[in-house]
């Protein structure tokens, strides 16, 4: 190709890939020659000498590389450890959930065992349920039980609780019943009145246990004849006369001999006696209770 004006050859641009193809071919041939010579062992001591020069540099670089690699490995290990921590956290969470489930089952088992023990010792047929709610205000001492008419719960049934080593004791009476829940009036409520009797040696004294929570106490036994012997520590149980006594709970069906508490202090008031009663079970601390469905005669 020629320049028509100046009549001289045009130079190809430097970036043309074909411009120095001869150089490429020469380099390829040179590389091939080196390969053949090396394979034939004709490079002699040249190559070992070059490599002996390069070896210390390589060793130095390798040391640097190892330390860098160590850091890199450390970083990789950190990443792996993070992944492992995440996996362990997930496993831990699962185990915690499983543990909670086991605790719940254990609790259920304990409650059922307690129920069985009570039913074995007493002629009662019980139904256990969680206390699902308490009244938010202090006006009334009422709790909601997670059992209702579908479970055989009826108004007036006695509700029992157990705390520590205490005997199963009365904590309230079923007031209203829904299909799956019921409200229980606690015996500590001011409006609660339950017929009771005190065993003192061979003598039995009868009275009424009245709730006192709203007036700053817990239970009070009233209506005991002055002549009846009453001593602190005497055991108070239900009398089973609630319905007959025409109290505020006309449908009350509380059987007799359910423990309520013990006598703490006694006050003589005219011809009668009054006593402060310490309940076996604090109704406010109970989270699980049994409804006494029936009693074997």
């Amino acid at each position: 190709m020629r320049d028509s004006l100046r009549n001289r050859p045009i130079k190809l641009p430097r970036s043309s890939p074909y411009r120095s193809l001869t150089l490429v071919v020469a380099l390829v041939l040179l590389a091939l020659l080196l390969l053949v010579l090396d394979q034939a062992g004709m490079l002699g001591a040249v190559r070992p000498q070059i490599q002996s020069l390069l070896t210390p540099i390589m060793r130095l670089l390798r040391q640097v590389g190892d330390s860098v690699g160590g850091v890199s490995q450390g970083l990789t290990e950190v990443t792996q450890l993070r992944a492992r921590v995440a996996a362990l956290e997930a496993e831990n969470s699962q185990l915690k959930a499983g543990n909670l489930q086991l605790q719940e089952l254990q609790l259920q088992l304990t409650r059922l065992e307690a129920q069985l023990r009570i039913e074995k010792e007493r002629p009662w047929k019980l139904f256990g349920a969680d206390i699902s709610a308490r009244t938010p205000d202090g006006g009334r001492r009422v709790v909601l039980l997670a059992a209702g008419s579908e479970q055989g719960v009826k108004p007036g049934m006695a509700v029992l609780g157990k705390e520590g080593s205490s005997p199963p004791a009365l904590i309230g009476v079923v007031e209203n019943v829904g299909p799956r829940s019921s409200s229980v009036l606690l015996i500590t409520d001011f409006s609660s009145a339950v017929s009771a009797q005190v065993y003192h040696k061979d003598i039995i004294a009868s009275g009424v246990v009245q709730g006192q929570w709203q007036v700053g106490s817990r239970l009070k036994l009233e209506g005991i004849e002055r002549a009846e012997p009453l001593v602190a520590g005497d055991v108070l149980v239900t009398a089973g006369l609630t319905a007959r006594m025409d109290l505020a709970l006309p449908r009350a069906a509380i059987p007799k001999d359910i423990p309520i508490g013990t006598i703490e202090t006694i006050q003589v008031d005219g011809h009668s006696q009054r006593a402060d009663v310490r309940p076996y079970v604090d109704p406010d601390r109970v989270s699980y209770a049994w409804v006494l469905l029936s009693q074997d005669e």
Partner: peptide
């Protein structure tokens, strides 16, 4: 362009052969 890069390839190939202890010219 390939002509310019051929020099790089040749030197780099020989350097790789020396550092990797492979037959001289192989990587080139």
């Amino acid at each position: 362009g390939p002509a310019n890069a051929a020099r790089w390839a040749f030197y780099a190939g020989l350097a790789l052969d020396l550092s990797a202890d492979t037959a001289l010219g192989l990587h080139a």
